[in-house]
Design a binder for these strands. Structure first.
Lengths: 93, 93
DNA sequence: CTTCGACCAGATCACCCTTGTTCATTCTTG
DNA sequence: CAAGAATGAACAAGGGTGATCTGGTCGAAG
């Protein structure tokens, strides 16, 4: 599923055009991104929470050369599904 | 940051009321959830991708009794930030 | 058309995950 | 707006899983 499909679903849900839905989706995602960047955490009841996570540096391996390399600490964005969402995915195949 | 704040941001971005933005956010999130449930994966260019991940069964420990327990395989929803989003969080503190 | 993401290899260790209760926060309804 | 209801976060501890590193290419998506 890609962005276009999501836009269609949103358009259908909100009864608006795809163009409108496209901006809508973009606005929401941008809002979430902004929230994660500024507050470091975005909690949405009934859905889940996005959190800016720091990954500690560690020793990795270059798959090409099999040579051990030092991986610097990095920051990523994690998503923790709420119990409701977890319950939803559990039943699906 | 909670859902209300996100609603405010979206409302501001789309120039609509908070009530409208609330439904908007809900629709988008529900759409994403639906996509993950049906397709198992939702890729959004420039933001990231949600994926339904299966966690294999393993042996855990009951934190209270320290007793080893068998944990059944479960399904969760993972989020992989796109390079752009990663780049964004890298620069933020 | 151009860019963005997926893929895959192998190996390592950081981080997630379990339980269960309590509290705080948030959402909803009157 | 206020109060009640519901959901999530935190904590503890340890083992094992999976995320992730590189990087070039292909396919798809915008």
């Amino acid at each position: 599923m890609n962005k276009g499909d999501l836009v269609e679903v949103v358009a259908s849900s909100l009864n608006e055009t795809k163009a409108q839905a496209s901006r809508t989706v973009d606005a929401v995602l941008e809002g979430i991104a902004k929230g994660v960047l500024s507050d470091g955490k975005v909690t949405i009841t009934g859905f889940g929470s996005f959190e800016k996570k720091k990954r500690a540096a560690r020793t990795g391996v270059n798959p090409h050369t099999k040579e051990p390399i030092q991986i610097a600490a990095s920051t990523t964005v994690g998503f923790k599904p709420s119990q409701a969402l977890k319950n939803s995915v559990q039943g699906e195949s």
